[in-house]
Amino acid sequence: MSAPAQPAAADAEQDSNLIIVEDLIKHFPIRAGLLRRQVGAVQAVDGVNFAVKKRETFSIVGESGCGKSTTARLLTRLLEATAGKVTFEGRDITHLKDAQLRPLRRDMQMIFQDPYSSLNPRHTVGKIVGAPFRIQGVSPPGGVKKAVQDLLAAVGLNPEHYNRYPHEFSGGQRQRIGIARTLALRPRLIVADEPVSALDVSIQAQVLNLLEDLQEEFDLTYVIIAHDLSVVRYVSDRVAVMYLGKIVELADAEALYSTPMHPYTVALMSAVPVPDTRRRQQRERILLSGDVPSPIKPPPACRFHTRCWKAQEICRTKEPPLVELVPRHQVACHFPENYPPNEAADLR
């Protein structure tokens, strides 16, 4: 079921967006019993809206089970959405068939978390990085081998390692191999799901610096999925915070980190350990009690109300919409932090 091609939007705002996500929903059915009837659904992503501009780094941050990885897979169409719409370069890709998707893969690629399981151990580096050319039937100028060696050099690996196998490389080097592969077809969008979380600190910094250089060199747009708030702040232009399948806050990185408005964001940030002993005594930490509720049965209305210290009756009955409270800063909360209280009252 392919949707008809959307007419390209004319205005500049639309034009600068590479990918637009509207009311995106992904529910994974839970089946039980003899007839495998659906008895419920994991509401992994439940109504998410955002747009990523060309050449920007957009990050989605949140704890495990918040739906950030599912969102990444919906963007790249490794998963098909239950409802909603994903528009890539003005084209609706939400329900494209496999054959229609293949050309799209040239334009969007993924970097995965685990550099051990994302590379075929039986293939040489040359074969791994050259695979996109083979699969897409592209013959790069100068031949595949030359192209692969150029890519290896671009990610800081020795081009002579063309014939080596993944096990001969360290974790950080493997991640570079994975990055070289994603760059092969000169994609426009790279979706990176926890690109550095499996790496050691010293290697993490190398890979983060590399991603930054490549963005400049190859004109890339990044969507980065991560749980590490320090890493997210370092790489991102804009950040979306997800909680139980919904975006609770979306803002420019600097604004989000200097004046977080959603209580969940505030709590998340206060929990980050900082390598500074002097701050041990001073800092005020907001300890959230309990665990994230199950996405099978998320709390009604505001999903954070069960753990929120500011929750009141309205939070249990009325879902706060994601609204732009201050320019370029969207929050879904009835009682936002860092916001004039009288104005917050008017808004309700």
Binding site: V201, S202, I203, Q204, A205, Q206, L208, N209, E212, L229, S230, V231, R233, Y234, A253, E254, Y257, M269, V272, V274, P275, D276, R279
Partner: peptide, 18 residues
């Protein structure tokens, strides 16, 4: 220390990777 993006300081221009 230089490899870690710092949460509590202004954003680094570039990490001092080892």
């Amino acid at each position: 220390l230089g490899s870690m993006p710092r949460f509590d300081r202004p954003r680094e221009e570039r990490l001092l990777a080892i």
